[in-house]
Simulated scan of single mutants.
Amino acid sequence: MLKPLALIALTLAGIGGAAAASGDAWEEFAAEVEEACLAATADYFTDASVVVDPFGSESFGLAIVSSDTASIVCVFDKETKAVEIGGELPVTVTATEE
């Protein structure tokens, strides 16, 4: 009986470590998407803010880059790191503090 309990304890300890590591990985991913999207929209906006979907979709990182007067949707390919942007939309989006 002791061996199965030890195995369960080790498994649960490993899951806790993986969850912490994945949290750091998601933060790094969001920062990578933000940087890439700001670079891709630099010709449109000089002082922009970015709202990043913290996880994106299965294949893409997703963000909205905004200035005072417009926003652009930005899509970041998770595999190739390529960025595509849409056209300017007459809507602004601001991040909220959680």
Rank of each mutant, 00 (worst) to 15 (best):
M1T: 13
L2T: 14
K3E: 14
P4S: 08
P4L: 09
L5S: 13
L5P: 04
L5D: 09
A6H: 00
A6R: 15
I8W: 03
I8C: 08
A9S: 14
A9K: 08
A9D: 02
A9L: 14
L10Q: 05
L10E: 01
T11F: 13
L12F: 02
I15E: 08
I15Y: 03
G17L: 07
G17M: 01
A19V: 15
A20G: 07
A20F: 14
A20R: 01
A21R: 02
A21L: 08
S22K: 04
S22T: 09
D24I: 01
D24R: 11
E27Q: 13
E28A: 13
E28G: 06
F29V: 03
F29A: 06
F29T: 00
E32L: 05
E32V: 03
V33S: 00
V33W: 05
V33Q: 06
E34K: 06
E35P: 01
A36K: 06
A36R: 09
A36E: 09
C37H: 01
A39Y: 00
A40R: 12
D43S: 00
D43C: 06
F45S: 10
D47N: 14
D47I: 02
A48S: 13
A48M: 06
S49W: 04
S49T: 15
S49C: 03
V50F: 07
V52C: 09
D53L: 06
D53E: 06
F55V: 02
S57Q: 12
E58D: 14
F60P: 08
F60T: 01
G61Q: 02
G61M: 01
L62C: 06
A63M: 01
A63K: 06
I64V: 15
I64K: 12
S67F: 13
A70P: 15
A70D: 15
A70T: 11
A70H: 15
S71Y: 13
I72N: 11
I72Y: 13
V73G: 03
C74G: 08
F76I: 04
D77G: 10
D77R: 12
D77L: 15
E79H: 07
T80P: 09
A82N: 15
A82Y: 00
A82L: 12
V83D: 11
I85Q: 07
G86I: 04
G86P: 09
G86Q: 09
G86L: 04
G86E: 10
G87M: 05
G87F: 01
L89P: 12
P90F: 11
V91I: 14
V91P: 06
T92H: 09
V93F: 07
V93C: 07
T94G: 00
A95S: 12
E98P: 15
E98Q: 06
E98S: 02
